[in-house]
Amino acid sequence: MKEAFARNKVLGVLVIILLLTNLLLLFFFVWNKPDDARSSNRGRGGEVMQLLEKQVGFSKQQLDQYKQLKDQHWERLKPSFGELRTARDNFYKLLNENSVPDSVLMAAADSIGAKQVVIDLQTYRHFREVRGLCTPEQLPHFDSVVQHVMKKMNNFRKSPPREDSLKR
């Protein structure tokens, strides 16, 4: 009898722990919403807008102009990202072939590189346009912010590979 009571007690404690965990998750997802300031700057460019406002000192008018430039920039880039994705897909589809000549492999890799060049040139031009919004006093701060943003983008692209689960 004592054994059954002890087993049910453990199950009861586990049920209570699970119930509390579920309530915490429910609270987190329902009531823990971001404040308006953070949610208004979410999405592409939200962090950059905050940097431009806080570190560079962009005015409301400059931020509005930046938002227009950013939206135009992403509209121009969308097709390029699609082309880059397609070029990479085509490159890795070559893995399905038994034998791929080096010339075909290099041509496919060059295609990826050409698409990336287009994206980088468009991004460079975009930042030159945004730089044109700056006052002379803001230029040093802007240049610093752009270098910071580009380093973050490059670190994201060059993040170290995860440990291969097959090597364990």
Rank of each mutant, 00 (worst) to 15 (best):
K2S: 03
E3S: 08
F5W: 07
N8H: 10
K9T: 15
K9S: 14
V10S: 04
V13E: 03
L14T: 12
I16Q: 02
I17H: 01
T21H: 06
N22Q: 13
L23W: 05
L24G: 11
L24S: 08
F27K: 06
F27S: 09
V30M: 07
W31T: 05
N32C: 06
D35E: 03
D36M: 06
A37K: 08
A37H: 06
S39E: 14
S39N: 11
S39I: 15
G43S: 03
G43F: 02
R44C: 01
G45Y: 05
E47Q: 15
V48R: 03
Q50M: 12
L51I: 07
L52S: 01
E53C: 00
E53T: 07
E53M: 04
K54Q: 13
V56W: 00
V56D: 00
G57L: 04
G57N: 05
G57E: 03
F58W: 02
F58V: 05
F58Q: 02
K60R: 09
Q61H: 06
D64W: 04
Q65T: 07
K67N: 06
Q68I: 13
L69N: 04
K70T: 01
H73Y: 04
H73T: 02
W74I: 12
E75D: 12
R76Y: 05
R76G: 05
R76N: 11
R76F: 03
L77M: 14
P79V: 09
P79R: 11
S80F: 05
S80R: 10
S80K: 11
F81W: 14
F81R: 09
E83M: 08
E83G: 04
L84Y: 09
R85T: 13
A87D: 08
A87E: 06
R88Q: 09
R88H: 04
R88E: 05
D89W: 10
D89K: 15
N90S: 10
K93C: 04
L94N: 03
L94A: 03
L94C: 02
L95H: 11
N96V: 02
E97C: 02
S99E: 12
L105C: 06
M106S: 12
A108H: 09
A108I: 08
I112P: 00
I112T: 07
G113N: 07
G113S: 07
G113T: 10
A114L: 09
A114P: 01
K115I: 06
Q116N: 15
T123Y: 00
Y124D: 10
Y124W: 12
R128Q: 15
R128S: 09
V130K: 01
V130G: 00
L133K: 05
T135N: 07
E137H: 04
E137D: 10
L139R: 10
P140V: 11
P140E: 11
H141T: 01
F142R: 00
F142C: 00
D143G: 04
S144N: 13
V145N: 01
Q147D: 14
H148C: 01
H148G: 03
H148S: 11
M150K: 14
M150H: 10
K151G: 04
K151P: 02
K152L: 14
M153T: 12
N154K: 13
N154E: 13
N154C: 05
N155P: 01
R157L: 14
K158L: 15
S159P: 01
P161V: 09
E163W: 14
S165F: 13
L166Y: 08
K167S: 14
R168F: 11
